[in-house]
Design a binder for these strands. Structure first.
Length: 463
RNA sequence: UCCCCAGUAGCUCAGUCGGUAGAGCGGGUGACUGUUAAUCACCAUGUCCGUGGUUCGAGUCCGCGCUGGGGAGCCA
């Protein structure tokens, strides 16, 4: 097909003039006497471009002035200044080809639809304004994440998706098996004998790449993972999906303070990136999705993140002149309502809460000298609460084994993880960030199902 | 998994006291010399989520089920 110019690039032209070919899908058609206007969008930007069809210069004007929403078109014409308000430039069409027809059954009309309805047509919703903006932002952010770590010489490691370890206990595993649903080989006790399974053992989809990431940090220093993660939890909320993407950096020769420094730099970098590189889409979110979004993201990009000990956070909450639904007491985990109070009311901006009681945190977190806390951190931000969770890892073999025993975790499957503490063990730290939650935070979108192209949630794996 | 709410035209919704369905948008036809998810006129559109019940009569009341949404837990 003829070489086409992306509409986003076309509108970057410093001045009108010149002939161009563009191709995309019709968003709306407005006909008026001898002139018709078509808004054409090719996904490269939010606004698309206005095509002008004049009866005198376009063949088959009668039909072309009635093209329905969703029609795929390729058009050629001259880039001219627009005499009307609403756009600087427009394309005066000289040739038009209908590449793919549409019809009135097209489920996306030129009107506002509910997100629930659009979710039911996830194969078509990227052609809408909101989802076009969301998925452009998602793509740019993914690249920005790689850029951030690449600029700092972090090694990008692909940790396995199929795993035999459920060490973190981060959630229910999706089973991976080739055994027949009925008639799987059994042990004497009646349980399934996984030694006959494809991998010769019980396997599932990964719930985190962290443990493998730690191994690579012990070779390359600074590393990160960025890939899909799976949890078979029956969570029915706007913040959970069964399949989501996670970013997990890990740094050798580093402690909890270094970890928080990296997390702060990372979040501020991504906020600035979105504002600068996705300006048109961010303006759309600010106007249509969440009023004040740009100001909120801007303030985070500028802020120095506060740091607060868990114990101090508890004191703040106990002194709070509001009543919470959940109890506040040293030793209990913070609920969303507590997290939001801390970041929104106490601090008025992003805050790290540091050094949590060891009994509410994972086995691999480094035990502090006080004997009752571990070097864990959560980054809390206004509106959503926790956005990042991380820790300094326990690098001392004795303490790690002791904790594994205390928590009644099977040690044998972790032999390789423990080996990393046997030879050349180093203090190291890292964190995890859910990619979808980042997109929600930067776009103002409130449902995780609306920031991932084809969401997988309990009872849903369509498309 | 628990609690709450909802399901009516293609979409967004209204529907009073239980009396047999109605707006906008979208669609069709036409008008209009530059529109901005145009405007104006006319036209068409229904398994009222399913199922059982109460009733002379159910979109409306009740039971059960299904689906969706919100909140919580778990967490990222």
């Amino acid at each position: 097909m003829a070489k086409r110019t992306l509409i986003a690039d076309l509108l970057q032209q410093p001045e009108a003039g010149g002939d161009y070919t563009v191709a995309g899908w019709v968003r709306s058609t407005r006909a008026s006497g001898d002139v018709a206007f078509i808004v054409l969008n090719d996904g490269s930007n939010l606004s698309g471009i206005q095509l002008v069809l004049e009866r005198a210069t376009v063949t088959n004007f009668e039909n072309h002035s009635k093209l329905g929403t969703g029609t795929a078109l390729q058009v050629s014409g001259e880039l001219v200044p627009s005499p009307a308000a609403g756009q600087q430039l427009e394309l005066r069409v000289t040739a038009l080809t209908v590449v793919g027809e549409s019809n009135p059954d097209y489920p996306l009309q030129k009107k506002r639809h509910s997100f629930e309805y659009l979710r039911s047509i996830a194969h078509l919703r990227p052609r809408s304004n909101t989802f076009g903006a969301v998925f452009r932002l998602r793509s740019r952010l993914a690249q920005a994440i790689h850029q951030f770590f690449s600029e700092r010489n972090f090694l990008y490691v692909h940790t396995p998706i199929i795993t035999a370890s459920d060490c973190e206990g981060a959630g229910e595993l999706f089973r991976v098996t080739t055994l027949p649903p009925n008639g799987a080989p059994r042990n004497e006790g009646g349980s399934i004998d996984f030694s006959h399974d494809f991998f010769g053992q019980k396997t599932g989809l990964t719930v985190s790449g962290q443990l493998e990431g730690e191994l690579f940090a012990q070779s390359f220093g600074n590393i990160y993972t960025f890939g899909p993660t799976f949890r078979a939890e029956n969570s029915n909320t706007a913040r959970h999906a069964s399949e989501f993407w996670m970013i997990e950096p890990e740094m050798a020769f580093s402690n909890l303070a270094d970890d928080a420094d990296l997390a702060e730099e990372f979040v501020r970098y991504l906020c600035s990136f979105a504002l600068e590189q996705c300006a048109e889409d961010m303006t759309f979110f600010d106007q249509q999705i969440e009023k004040g979004l740009i100001e909120r993201v801007h303030s985070v990009a500028q802020a120095n993140f506060a740091r607060m000990e868990y114990g101090d956070a508890i004191t703040h909450l106990q002194k709070a002149p509001v009543s919470f639904n959940f109890p506040v007491e040293w030793g209990l985990d913070l609920q969303t309502e507590h997290e939001r109070y801390l970041t929104e009311q106490v601090v008025g901006g992003p805050v790290f809460v540091l050094n949590y009681p060891k009994d509410i945190k994972a086995f691999y977190m480094r035990q502090n000298d006080d004997g009752r806390t571990v070097a864990a951190m959560d980054l809390l931000v206004p509106k959503v609460g926790e956005i990042i969770g991380g820790s300094q890892r326990e690098e001392r073999l004795d303490q790690l084994e002791q904790r594994i025993n205390e928590m009644d975790i099977p040690k044998e499957p972790l032999w390789w993880y423990l080996d990393s503490r046997r030879w050349g063990s180093t203090p190291h730290a890292g964190f995890g960030l859910g990619f979808e939650r980042l997109i929600m935070y930067l776009s103002g979108m409130e449902n995780i199902r609306d920031v991932i192209p084809f969401p997988r949630t309990p009872r849903h794996a369509e498309f």
